[in-house]
Amino acid sequence: MLDAGPQPLVQVSDLKMYFPIHTGLLRKHTGDVKAVDGVSFSINQGETLGLVGESGCGKSTVGRALLRLYEPTAGKVVIDGQDVASLTPEALRQKRPTMQMVFQDPQASLNPRMTVADIIGEPLLEHANLDEQGRLRRIYELMDQVGLNRSFANRYPYAFSGGQRQRIGIARALALNPKFIVCDEPIAALDVSIQAQVVNLLEDLQTRLGLTYLFISHDLSMVRHIADRVAVMYLGRIAELSPRDALYARPLHPYAEALLSAVNEPDPNRARRQRIILKGDVPSPANPPKGCNFCTRCPKVFDLCRTIKPDLIQAEPGRFVACHLYSNTNAGPTGTQAPISDNQQGVSQ
């Protein structure tokens, strides 16, 4: 995969994002919420990586740390040849046009006191050297691209429906011809009929403009529709990173298996999937378990899981799993084949 496929556009290695906890009268630093704890993956040019997981597992934090909207605690984020995590503020500002974001809540991500033209024009005002005519032309072009009527340019966000607002947000993200877009649950706040429209628009733009997406979502069927590869996160770590079809057909990690068993099957004639009900709650990210993060709830847990954190290793060609069931030191009961101890892109964790 290293030399065969296209060059990765985004390469994340060992990304950590800790939020400090201060307690007591003196606000002493007593611990960290480990929202993202050592995440590594890469996204190829033109590819869509889906990032799924339950609420609070750190999906959105990964997306925001990637664009350095948060200052990552540790790790490298190489986007298009430059390590975003270590750029100086001015270099980062110059870098911003290559990477953009579509936000979850289209209501909150648009300034209620700016017109649509002002919102879409803001990135142009900041980065593009255009006069008023040129800017207006580009704004109209973007509105055409995302399917917004040009006559809406002077209206305020409150006048639009959720789907239209998300289109405004997408147009703003596209304004500077980015290469990489983080879609942070762009459809979570929309109703189902509009979700399809927005996802189709995103796909359409990807084919036309050659965009690369990190598609963060908790909607597994939508991720199945849009993503090429899918990363399943649990408690700040990636549990499994596999090509879409392989993952949905046969998830390797017990958590991925449980998560996917929750997807509803629309066809009642098909055999109903065996649901795996997980017991207990997600441990606090401020105090994760000593061993594997999933060991407190895993149906296939054994001793090693409680002491050593499993690394993300290649279990099958192109499939990466962080689970002791697939590590060669201790092949578990359901280990299907001899795992290849090869960390993705040679990144050591």
Partner: peptide, 28 residues
């Protein structure tokens, strides 16, 4: 903490212009 300020940050708008363009108009 609102997302439109985050969006402005992701665009690369400097703090002084975020204040003028997004914050001040909304504290009106």
């Amino acid at each position: 903490e609102r997302e439109f300020v985050l969006a402005a940050k992701s665009i690369g708008t400097p703090a002084r212009r975020i204040i003028l363009r997004h914050i001040l108009t909304n504290v009106l």
